[in-house]
Design a protein around this nucleic acid. Structure first.
Lengths: 186, 186
DNA sequence: ACCTGAACACCGTTCAAGT
DNA sequence: ACCTGAACACCGTTCAAGT
């Protein structure tokens, strides 16, 4: 018969994964330290050992998780930008529960670093005002995902199907992205 | 000597104004029913008489307040769209404390009505796919304001001044808006 | 009709204590 | 080093009661 396994030790990563699961499944308002402790089979107070600033640190970490996006440089700055936009959109769509944090928390830590790296990437690829381009790309992706997710929670008068709305969002995104890249070409 | 004036009666409007003041001044997390009651010189429980669904209803009302934007129709659909974008941006910038709600709550009530009216306005002005245009305009404004407000809370390595960042945001917005309107022209 | 007081279940966080 | 238990101040909400 199986011996009682020693419990997997708590870690920052496990905490964040569990928190994302709760936020995405039940909403950010139901993500509490106590519920998070339950999900991890631990008393809530144990979390403070790994996230000393408590819930504030947790919220920051969740925002960073969906927002510190890096991609490999592609042959052209346009293609690099495209890859980044798609990756950032995917990350946000996968975790709608923390979208509010991702869109409003000021960039810190890994996110701030990712932004700087992306700016250098685009500058290196020959784009003149890369800082402005990064701001525009971020605004485009954030806005697109915001209205897409908003709409998915809407009592739709036209009763769109799930797959149809999904396909339309994809097409809108690709088209908007290409238009924006043309605009940035300057 | 002045007689003790009878207290101004509570109302939905006064509650929302006070709530916006707290959220903008101290952040959404510090907006509690009890603090809101204090600001209104009333016990927290009195609020439930005017907002029966309690805090949930309050949050909905705050999102609606900055998001149910209507403008008068202008000679061209482009000019109508421009007016709407500017008005929506102003409303969001004035109340950064509820931006997270505005960007993530699904449109309901007055907001849903405003969206429908705007769609009809643009359709009436000759735009073929007005529903898609409205989605694009909303995405553009939401994204722009999100990164602008995010940046204003950032420890900026280049130490931009307040007025300079403001001017740049205005210019970015106008330029992006015009590019988008050209793109929607079909 | 409008507001209060007391009560309840829940929350974030601290700190001393356990192993 | 890592986790627990008890405690504290605060929170949202209900309900009976006051005027």
């Amino acid at each position: 018969m199986p011996a009682k396994r020693p419990p997997v030790p708590l870690s920052r990563e496990r905490i964040i994964d569990a928190a994302l699961h709760i936020a995405d499944g039940q909403g950010l308002r139901r993500l509490t330290m106590r519920r998070l402790g339950d999900a991890l089979q631990v008393e809530a107070m144990a979390i403070y050992h790994h996230l000393p600033r408590g819930k504030e640190a947790l919220m920051d970490a969740l925002a960073e998780h969906v927002t510190a996006i890096q991609v490999d440089p592609a042959p052209t700055w346009q293609e690099t930008a495209r890859q980044w936009c798609r990756a950032q959109r995917e990350a946000l769509r996968e975790h709608p529960g923390v979208l509010a944090l991702a869109l409003t928390k000021p960039p810190k830590g890994a996110t701030a670093i990712a932004i700087m790296e992306q700016t250098e990437q685009l500058t290196g690829a020959g784009l003149s005002d890369a800082a402005e381009a990064v701001r525009s790309l971020r605004a485009f992706v954030f806005g697109s995902v915001a209205v897409e997710v908003q709409q998915s929670g809407w009592a739709d008068p036209e009763r769109d199907t799930w797959t149809r709305r999904d396909a339309r969002a994809d097409a809108d995104f690709e088209r908007g992205m290409d238009a924006m890249l043309r605009g940035l070409g300057g």
